[in-house]
Design a protein around this nucleic acid. Sequence first.
RNA 1: GCCAACGUAGCUCAGGGGUAGAGCAGCUCACUCGUAAUGAGCAGGUCGUCGGUUCAAAUCCGACCGUUGGCUCCA
Length: 688
Amino acid sequence: MQITLPDGSTRALPDGATGRDLAQDISAGLARAALAVEVDGEVHDLDRPLPDGATVAILTWESEGGKAAFWHSSAHLMAEALEALYPGVKLGIGPSIDTGFYYDVDLSETDHPVLSADDLPAIEKKMIELARTDSAFERRDVPKAEAVAHFEAKGDPYKLELLEGLEDGQITFYTQGGFTDLCRGPHIASTKPIKAVKLLSLAGAYWRGDESRPQLTRIYGVSFPKQKMLEEHLERLELAKQRDHRKLGRELELFMFSDKVGPGLPIWLPKGARLRETLVDFLKEEQVKRGYEPVVTPHIGRLELYRTSGHYPYYSDSQFPPMFEKGAASGSAGLGTEAEGVSEGAELANSGDGAEGAAPTLGGDEQGYLLKPMNCPHHTQVYAHKPHSYRDLPVRLAEFGTVYRYEQSGELGGLTRVRGFTQDDAHIFCTPEQVKDEFKNVIDLTLTVLKALAFEDFTAQVSLRDPANTEKYIGEPAQWDGAEQAIREAAAEMGLETVEEEGEAAFYGPKLDFMVKDALGRSWQLGTVQLDYNLPERFDLTYIDENDQRVRPVMIHRAPFGSLERFVGVMLEHTGGNLPLWLAPTQVKVLPITDDQDDYARSVADDLKGAGLRVEVDTRSEKVGRKIRDAEVEKVPVMLILGKNEAEAGTVSVRRHGLGDDSDQGASEVPALRQGLLDEIARQLGRA
RNA sequence: GCCAACGUAGCUCAGGGGUAGAGCAGCUCACUCGUAAUGAGCAGGUCGUCGGUUCAAAUCCGACCGUUGGCUCCA
């Protein structure tokens, strides 16, 4: 038979040859490294016969598919170890993931129902012991009835439930050693290559991700073909922790949290506020250039506003409970408008079944106020305050609006998931024909912002309707087709590469999201551009078209940063806290060598401050070495070292963060330095 | 919210049934110094909160508060 390799070349093999035979045919080294094969795009076991005419790639540890097979096999190995250590354990699912593998297990009927981190080393040990037996992973087709009988005998309800969703004739078992699992595969050939295992963490995980189902114990782990690779992996995890924005935020004194203020409510310290304001100023300028008009709206709004928008009470479990006016008819829970009443409401929500239990009532006519969970309802009122002509459109209303959402306590984390945050929000009201140009305008803005921050590894995702389920979306199908096409074209014309995801659109419109990964590899959504057919309808927004007809505008929600909090968090992790000059809270630190130079240092600082730079002078009674070290630790981009020579010559000696001593000792003139820094900032902002 | 771990000085962490310890940071003094930590002294904590066990609790138990990882990667 003929097999095509990824490079297009072909090879003739005897009928019934397997992936292993192919690897062997290419080279003995490849055969040793081979973990699995990719046959016409699908990953298979090494020892399955290859179909004639297939395109086949040999997968090693270096490929994603190879790693996936390795880790998936490691999950089975862990399951085998668990069965050996904890007889009676029931197994959920155990896939490979991007960073290793996990298995969800139910230990409730074993003699060790609660697993703790202390138990993990024993499981690792057992896994290694089992791996050394060099047991083959054997695949077997199993009739459904036999599979059901197998798991009934074993008493495993989870596997039985999984079987319900599978067709007879498509069911396979894999066995290694004394362990057999329902599994589609693929697997590596044997347990032998699994040389190093580390079980990393334990977590509760609801069966099938459903809170109403039993909670299983999820064990996360990672494994490698060499001990050294595991050590390197653990080192990388340690290094990633150094870049954690929570650690950097504390060390650089950017932000904090206070138990007294409340969980998930970040407090910006002076240096963090400088950073934040710099970001805001930059974006405000870019927005003005692009035709946005700033507006300012209150932090609360009547419940009626949110009933009209549809956010209340529909999303009430993700909102802080409403405030009711004193003496209002509904005061059954005794909530007043005073601060005490409000915080008590929040506590109620915390101990109850979400805010629904906490809200005094959810009656349809309650008068009261809601802390705003988004800015759009307010902005519709700005648009609605006067009639609009098609000649006015698009109307672009921008506000750095602080919003509050009652995230579940377990969801909170650093600056990436908080309960109070500021969106760089804007709402564009336009005609359907303008949608494409508006998307282009927003993409341009977003790319400008990401470029100024040297963000390169982000992905842009276009979220489309689920074509199989069109009735759950509001608006005309033709409108959707047009809009989805407009987004695609806008992205293409702006040179933005996108991935498309069907079924990820909101019910009210398609969207374009910008996603990035944090230091630990978790994915976060930052910027977003969302089309909305819903709110203009609900608020009865209109404009008069050229035929003197009242028609609906299209609304676009957009936030290039998403939230300032999350954006700063992710940016700190990307830069490791080494912020670009334009953004650093302290841009320049002046370091006089002895106090004889203090006055000169202050005069240099004043000169630079006059040009708008953020400058500090270190006049402590310390040696320069110490002053430099502290400035380096604070990650100040520019240090100016001033001694007797500089003071006499009227020059400065420049040291850049992270670069050590530079060669121009004492050689820079202050005006040239000042201009150089200003030019550098302009370049970073794309304004050179 | 649920599962697991954690919570000791501003930070990093040690200790552990007999009422607390280090380094750094801070303050004072001396030192006036040329590219990543000058020295000495001083001060700083009701060991997250509340309750229980005990002659005695930071230590053991419970509840609560908070932090962290996970609960969306589908045999």
